[in-house]
Design a protein around this nucleic acid. Sequence first.
DNA 1: CCTTGACCTTCCAGTCATTGGAACCCTTAC
DNA 2: GTAAGGGTTCCAATGACTGGAAGGTCAAGG
Lengths: 128, 128
Amino acid sequence: MNIKQAAEASGLPPKTIRYYEQIGLIKPARSANSYRDFSETDVHNLAFIARARALGFSIEDCRALLALYEDKSRASADVKAIAQRHLDEIEAKILQLAEMRDTLSALVLACRGNHRPDCPILASMSGD
Amino acid sequence: MNIKQAAEASGLPPKTIRYYEQIGLIKPARSANSYRDFSETDVHNLAFIARARALGFSIEDCRALLALYEDKSRASADVKAIAQRHLDEIEAKILQLAEMRDTLSALVLACRGNHRPDCPILASMSGD
DNA sequence: CCTTGACCTTCCAGTCATTGGAACCCTTAC
DNA sequence: GTAAGGGTTCCAATGACTGGAAGGTCAAGG
């Protein structure tokens, strides 16, 4: 299977697939004409990575998860540890963004947004 | 004022301040010895940028906000538009992260996390 | 047989907002 | 004189792609 088919089947752009090969995430075979030749397993792994990325896992997490996925004697505790750590990071980021949102929405509400220059948003950022 | 004092007064690392000068966000004077010489206004602008960055504004947004801040005939509507757009982006990102969190926390809950290989997390990422 | 268009290849550069390090200069105190 | 603790510049790396250039390959149509 050529890269375009693999891209359509996995939902990843060809550029991204080439990048994943470059960093050693996948190792597709090559045809005689030097084209990449993707097996069903390659496509499956690409879709695996795509789903992990959609959950926000880093590339290095994906590498570790893929290795665990291929290790039939893995311990599910190892997978869970990676997922739990990532979940903690997501929750921390949500808290941080919620704080920004609260501050910012209060400022936006307070700003009249007209032709005049007085603005609580700028006032807040200039230190009141 | 040397860069270290400006860093302490603004809460930004010296490296970051040099970077902000490099991209034209600030334009501190230079002493005879080629050291940067920060005025009170420079430090004030740095603190302004630091607060805007803490609210998640991009550097380009900071540039625009700083320009509006210095323009005494600005319209607060222009400030509000930038802030509202950024607020929308934050809210979109929170929704996206909350979705990741929901999916991921369900998977983490479902995973026993023991020495055995069966794992709903990997199962989900491999396409069930 | 030739051309056209849609593929494919590699490599280089850019994104965003820093951060680290190297190599070197300046100032102050002892 | 020298050591500590500033300062300077420039280059390279981060993460995860993405765009573009220059060129090779392949199937179909004239």
